[in-house]
């Protein structure tokens, strides 16, 4: 079998290097090579958003990124959202608004919502729903997720 590729990247602020096959997605690399299993696989074709990560300031579905493309990239995953032992306001808002049931989609929703609030600190309900349309949740019906994002926006603005 041909050689693996050496990839150097930054994940959650830390330098991370890993070996991967070019056919491995970034999602596979995060989960199987690096051990960051907080990023989830729901469909492996970009339609559920459970594998959402932030690369260089843009959210993407990591199942549709090759691991080798991560060379030199700055990646944020769910494991990097909390500040040490302090949860991010979005994480607190998701918990206090009961915005998760099974929780499998939650990492993707938090990464997506965080990117939204960073570029639009006070989004309307429609803007939240539009931005999050690439993140599927089958448990909640989205009501409490939308409210959690609204609540987090308020918390962040007050902070």
């Amino acid at each position: 079998m041909p050689a693996k590729t050496y990839v150097q990247t930054t994940i959650n602020g830390e330098h991370v290097d890993f070996l991967c096959e070019p056919r491995q997605s970034l999602l596979e690399c995060l989960r199987d090579e690096i051990g960051l299993t907080g990023t989830k696989e729901g469909c492996n074709d970009g339609n559920c958003g459970a594998c959402t990560v932030n690369i260089d300031g843009r959210i993407v579905t990591s199942c549709l990124v090759l691991g080798v493309e991560a060379e030199g990239a700055d990646i944020e995953t769910i494991e990097g959202v909390a500040d040490g032992s302090n949860l991010h306001p979005l994480q607190l808002a998701f918990l206090e608004n009961a915005a998760l049931q099974c929780g499998i989609c939650t990492p993707g929703f938090i990464i997506s919502s965080k990117a939204l609030l960073e570029q639009n600190p006070n989004p309307s309900e429609h803007e939240i729903r539009f931005w999050l349309a690439n993140n599927l949740c089958r448990c909640t019906g989205y009501d409490k997720i939308v409210r959690a994002v609204q609540d987090a926006a308020k918390r962040l603005q007050e902070a």
């Binding site: 970009g46 958003g49 993407v60 549709l64 539009f130 999050l132 349309a133 690439n134």
Partner: peptide, 9 residues
């Protein structure tokens, strides 16, 4: 085209 994440790529 796609959703927000897809539009990033």
């Amino acid at each position: 085209i796609g959703g927000t994440q897809i539009q990033g790529r």
